[in-house]
Design a protein around this nucleic acid. Structure first.
Lengths: 183, 183
DNA sequence: GATCTCATGTAAGGGGTTACATGATTTA
DNA sequence: TAAATCATGTAACCCCTTACATGAGATC
């Protein structure tokens, strides 16, 4: 019996969202799920094989003329049932989100205030980049014709990313001001 | 040469914040750093030993009468230098924060809307608990006499937790309403 | 001719938790 | 006398990334 963790279900779920190869899964991860779930090929390929071994998906090797071989995975009935059960299942308790900036800031009496400010400014820049990336994704979803159920929930998750990132940006601006005043 | 990752520095930093045993470090992690860094004893004890091996800390075994033996760690000059360098060093790129709720929500066309709403409500509850925990910590910092430099930065990091959590709470409330309207 | 995209996979290693093992003192 | 707190540690295991290995077709 294989351990079915969240990542395994994420991949299983993507098989129902138009992804049929490890490559497809990776692409979608990097695009649509980027702000709350991201994994590497080293995780994807072994997991897909595992899903097939477990009977949650069926494999077939497709050779389309010139292009390299593709292993196409299709979710099975058993797989769908498992996915549905997981989706509606209970949430585990909130994990602590690690934050390097906060960790460094916590120990910032070991550095001059101006350096601490520079750290927050660097963080602010990253957050702004992230926020812009969200706007780009949002735009691409809204302008695409495929406006299905996945798109609806996709937009809701994006909204989360935007809202939380915006709050973090505001905290940065406020903190920079506060630290500058004290200098 | 030992790999000095963020967690190693977090522990090294705590040695400068009144913590001198593995037990102390764990207590402070669970209290003050709880919202952005948390580790287990299985991580702490081997790391402390490593820090001593590396010359970043000095150990001594204290036997205070009845109580069990304590291994007391004191940071060295070399350790302080390493800590300062790390604190003012560059931030690594923003990691993707994994979020189980968003992952399940993303695949929520596989479940009825009322179940998705229930998931968001459960998440909202956890966030509210977390927010209240922050308020409690804030209160305990403000009412303690030890109002030093660490406390100042500690409050700043707490403010981050509060602001981001509040934004997430608002997103939950908004999303619940939105999903209910569609039913 | 170089680089980008498509495509799959493995091995080593990093970083972490959980469960276990032990035991004294203090408090309820 | 039961349980909470103080106190240290290890072994098994999980999850994941990075780097490596390979190769063809498309585009610039």
């Amino acid at each position: 019996m294989v351990k079915m963790n969240h990542t395994t279900y994420a991949i299983l779920g993507l098989l129902t969202a138009g992804c049929h190869t490890g490559y497809d899964v990776k692409q979608m991860m990097d695009n649509s799920l980027n702000h709350f779930w991201k994994i590497s090929y080293g995780q994807i390929y072994p997991t897909l094989r595992q899903l097939a071994d477990e009977g949650f998906a069926e494999v077939s090797t497709a050779n389309e003329g010139g292009k390299p071989d593709r292993k196409e995975y299709v979710i099975t009935e058993r797989g769908k049932e498992a996915l549905e059960q997981w989706v509606s299942g209970p949430l585990s308790s909130l994990p602590t989100e690690r934050n390097e900036l906060l960790l460094k800031l916590f120990f910032s009496r070991h550095q001059p205030a101006e350096k601490a400010i520079a750290q927050v400014e660097a963080y602010l820049n990253s957050l702004q980049e992230r926020y812009n990336a969200y706007l780009t994704i949002e735009h691409s979803i809204l302008s695409s014709c495929a406006f299905d159920a996945d798109a609806k929930y996709g937009l809701i998750t994006l909204e989360y990313g935007k809202k939380v990132t915006k709050a973090a940006i505001e905290w940065c601006e406020h903190t920079i001001q506060q630290l500058e005043e004290e200098e």
